[in-house]
Design a protein around this nucleic acid. Structure first.
Lengths: 339, 339
DNA sequence: TTGAAAGCGCTAACAG
DNA sequence: CTGTTAGCGCTTTCAA
C-alpha cells in the first residue's frame, strides 16, 4: 500500500491541504509546519501520485510527439533535442512513432481525444484539414516541427533557400548538368526544395531539363525521402547514358546514400564521375563524407518545445511561424574546384 | 467543456454505472440498453477521460522505456519494435531517453515512484544494485532488454557466442593477427563479447596478444560503444606500426565506423590492409558494406514487451531469461577467402 | 440487469 | 497561515 497524502497529514498532525501546499511549495505557509511536513514526507518516503495530481490539476504534465520512424535518421536528432527540452520542463514525453503514415491520424485522434497529453509536437508529417479543424476547434496546443500549415504554429527550415544554396554550390563547383532527386511531390518540403533547386538553375542561366528531375519512387505509405527512393531515382538518371547529369542534389541525405549506392554499382565514382550533395546532415553523413545542407535539429527541437510550453501556459491565438536557416557543410562528394 | 460520463448517462436515461459498463463492455448488460448508450456516446462524441480511468482502475495503460540515446543507432531499431508492440497492446509509450548515463537513475526513480507507468522496459543500460533492490521490494514489473541482471527478467543476445563466431569468421578468412576494440569493461556486453573473442582466439591456437585488445576510450558518462571510441581504439592499434593487426573485431558497428575512419586516415584500405567485422547490424552497416553480427532487434523488442505485459497481468515471481542468437552477415569488410 | 454511492489520491476554493 | 470540503471523471461494490 503506497503512502498517500492522508498518511502524511495524519502523521504530521495537519490537514491534507497543508500537505498539498508544501508539495507544491505554495506561498503562504509557516516555515515550521513546512519543515515538519517535509520531515514526515521524508520519513514515510511519500511520493505524490502523479495520476491523481493530473486529474485534480486538469493537466497531465506530459506532451506527445508524433514522429515518423521510416524517414531515416533525421528524426532521431530531433527526438534527442525534444527529449532534452521535455525533461528540462519536467514533463514526460509520450512517443507516438509512426512507421506507416496511416497511423498518423490514429495517433492524432488519440492525442486529441484522450486528454492524456497537454500538447503535441507534430514532426515531419502532413496534417489533414480535418484535424487542423479539430485542433482549432478545441484550441489544442500543438506545434509543427519540420512541417507546415498556415493555421498552425510551426518551426521549419528554410527549405527553398537551402535547396537554392545546395544547387548553387554544385554550380559553383563547375557542374552544368545538374539533377535533383526529390521526395513525393505531395509533401511540402519536396515542393519548396524543388523550387529552390529550379530557381538556382534558372538564375545561373542553366537549362532546366525535365529528365533531370526525378521523384522518389516508393511504397505508397512512405514519403519518398528514403534510401530506396534515392537508389531508384539515381538508377533512372543513370539510364540516361551519356546524357546523365554531372551532379545531383538529393532532397535528403538518406536518399543520397541510396544514390551513392547506385552510382557505385554502376562502377562510377564520386565526385569524379558524379558529384552529389544531400540535405539534412544526419550523423551518418559525416561518416561517409557527404557534402550536405545541415538542418539545426537541436535548435529546431528546442524552439518547438519552448513555443509549445508557451502555448500550454497561455492559450493565445496568433499563429507562430519560425523559419531557421540551413548551413552548407562541405565534405567530399562535390569536388574541390570551388568558385 | 468536454462531455463526461454523466452527460452520457443523463441523456441516455441510465446511471453512470451502466455507461461505464458499456464502455468496458462488461458481461451482464441488456443488449437494448447497450445499444441505446452506444448511440448517445456516438451522438455526443464522448471519449472516456484516460487519466480518470487510470486513477479509478489503478493502472495507467502506459509503459516506460529507459533507453540510451548516445550509443548509436542500434537502439532506434529496438525502439521501433517496442513501439509497435506497445501500440499492439493499446498502451502508451513513455520515453525516457538518456543521453548521459547519470540520468538513468533519475528516470528509474521517476518511473518507480510516480506510478505513471505500469511497467518498465530497461534497455541497453546497467542497473545499480540499489534499484534492483527497490524493484524487487515493490515487485515492480520490469524487463531488461539487451541488458542483464540475475534477479530480473531479461532478453539478451548471446554475446559470447556472437563474439566467438565473429572472431571465428575472421580466423576463417585467414587472418592471424586479430584485435578487438571493445566498450568499457564495466559493462556486461563488453565482458561477454571479450570472452567470446578470447575463446575463439585460443581455440584456434592463435596467440592472445594483450596489445591487440583495446577498450573504447571515451567520456566518463558514455559507455565506449560509440564511434569516437572506435576511432581512438583503432588509432592505438595503428600505432603498433608493423606489428599492427590484420583484422579487427569491433564490439559495435558504430565503433567499426569510427575505426574505419581511422583506417582511412592512415591511408589504409579495407579489407586489403585491415579487415573488420562489427556487431549489431544497424541500418548504416548495410550502406557501408560492413560485415557484422546481426542482432534480431525486432524479435528482441517483441519478446520483451510480451513478457512485460505478462508480468503486469500476473505478478509472478520467477525470473525469466531469454537469450537470442546473432546471425553472421557477410558483406565487404572481411575479404572473401572464406575457409 | 442496473442505479446509487463510495472511493481512487490529489488540488483548490472557502472559511476561519 | 491552515483545516475542511467539494470536486476531477471514472470504476466498482452493494443492493435492489
Amino acid at each position: 500500500m503506497p503512502v498517500t497524502i492522508y498518511d502524511v497529514a495524519q502523521k504530521a498532525g495537519v490537514g491534507i491541504g497543508t500537505v498539498s501546499r508544501v508539495i507544491n511549495n505554495s506561498s503562504q505557509i509557516k516555515d515550521s509546519t513546512k519543515q515538519k511536513v517535509l520531515g514526515v514526507i521524508n520519513d514515510l518516503n511519500y511520493q505524490p501520485h502523479i495520476v491523481a495530481q493530473s486529474l485534480a490539476r486538469r493537466k497531465t504534465s506530459s506532451i506527445g510527439c508524433i514522429i515518423p520512424f521510416f524517414t531515416g535518421y533525421f528524426f532521431v536528432e530531433l527526438l534527442r533535442g525534444i527529449q532534452r527540452k521535455v525533461s528540462f520542463y519536467k514533463h514526460e514525453l509520450i512517443l507516438y512513432s509512426v512507421d506507416d503514415v496511416s497511423k498518423t491520424e490514429t495517433f492524432l485522434k488519440k492525442a486529441l481525444d484522450e486528454r492524456r497529453v497537454d500538447g503535441l509536437l507534430f514532426v515531419s508529417l502532413d496534417i489533414s484539414p480535418e484535424y487542423v479543424r479539430k485542433i482549432k476547434e478545441k484550441n489544442f496546443p500543438i506545434v509543427l516541427l519540420d512541417s507546415y500549415h498556415d493555421e498552425l504554429d510551426s518551426i521549419k527550415v528554410n527549405n527553398e533557400d537551402g535547396a537554392f544554396r545546395a544547387t548553387t554550390h554544385l554550380i559553383n563547383c563547375g557542374y552544368k548538368k545538374i539533377a535533383m532527386i526529390n521526395g513525393i511531390m505531395s509533401s511540402l518540403p519536396s515542393i519548396t526544395r524543388f523550387e529552390g533547386f529550379k530557381k538556382a538553375i534558372i538564375e545561373a542561366d542553366l537549362e532546366y531539363d525535365e529528365r533531370y528531375f526525378v521523384q522518389g519512387d516508393c511504397a505508397p505509405d512512405a514519403d519518398g525521402f528514403n534510401k530506396e527512393a534515392g537508389y531508384l531515382g539515381m538508377k533512372k538518371l543513370l539510364e540516361l547514358g551519356k546524357a546523365r547529369p554531372e551532379a545531383i542534389f538529393a532532397a535528403s541525405d538518406i536518399q543520397a546514400v541510396g544514390a551513392l549506392r547506385a552510382i557505385g554499382e554502376a562502377g562510377l565514382k564520386t565526385p569524379e564521375d558524379i558529384a552529389i550533395i544531400g540535405f539534412d546532415d544526419i550523423e551518418l553523413s559525416e561518416h561517409i563524407g557527404l557534402t550536405t545542407m545541415r538542418q539545426p535539429t537541436m535548435r529546431m527541437a528546442g524552439l518547438a518545445m519552448t513555443r509549445l510550453m508557451e502555448k500550454i501556459g497561455s492559450k493565445n491565438d496568433d499563429v507562430f511561424v519560425k523559419r531557421v536557416e540551413t548551413e552548407l557543410i562541405i565534405r567530399d562528394t562535390c569536388g574541390f574546384n570551388l568558385k
